[in-house]
Design a protein around this nucleic acid. Sequence first.
DNA 1: CTAAAGTCTGTAGCCGCTACAGGGTCAAGC
DNA 2: GCTTGACCCTGTAGCGGCTACAGACTTTAG
Lengths: 135, 135
Amino acid sequence: MKIGEVATRSGCHPETVRYYERIGLLPAPPRTASGYRDYRSTDVDRLRFISRGRDLGFSLEEIRSLLGLAEDDGLSCQDVDRLARVHLVDIQARLGDLQRMAAELERVIGSCSGGERGQCVILDTLRRPLTSTEK
Amino acid sequence: MKIGEVATRSGCHPETVRYYERIGLLPAPPRTASGYRDYRSTDVDRLRFISRGRDLGFSLEEIRSLLGLAEDDGLSCQDVDRLARVHLVDIQARLGDLQRMAAELERVIGSCSGGERGQCVILDTLRRPLTSTEK
DNA sequence: CTAAAGTCTGTAGCCGCTACAGGGTCAAGC
DNA sequence: GCTTGACCCTGTAGCGGCTACAGACTTTAG
């Protein structure tokens, strides 16, 4: 199977597949006589695993760990769980940041559209120091 | 005022201040005889504006526009409002993505801790194609 | 047989910083 | 006056996670 097919089946671009190989996330496949990469279906599985991890917001380094843990069958389930929990905390923090941003933006956009001539509330907000609603 | 003081007062690192100058977001200040940058307080204001914009999740390019709009006094309030609204939509999209991620992670973490021996639910989730709850 | 599509390597760019290395300058203390 | 340390300067490289070339090759379809 050539890289194009692998790309289609895994949903990763060919450049991304080569990139994952370069950083050691996907093993280098054998080559055909003319130098083309020759993949098997386990490579597609691995790429799907990576892609799915990315969808869940894991970094490539986290995914590297998860792949390692998935490899060694044994009692690594706790490690996986721990990694997922740490990651969830991370995501929740970013979520909080974004929610504060959105709330603040909604506030100023609301004031602006209803505002009367005068100064632009959004620009004023940017000029003023942080309000108490934020970190 | 030297760069260190400007950095302290604006809350940006000196390297960041120089970076903003390099990309043309902050005008290059005059220099002292020995080549040190010599800022005035308007520069601190501008940096605070940028920093506040970053806190609200605007990109530096968006901030560049906002600075431009803030400069030319006139009827640019609508432009500011439009930019803010577009940005809010952006943020809300990212918010949705993160919420889906968090929900999915919570689901699998829950199953895992309560699960019985067998396979690790988290790794299984990563191996399986996307579920219907996701994009 | 030719043209298009795919593949190869290597390199550079994106964003928003951050962190050096290797120098110069300035203020305080002895 | 001289040293020490803190600051400042320029220029460059790195981070993550790709993406997009350029310029060469091979394979495939018509």
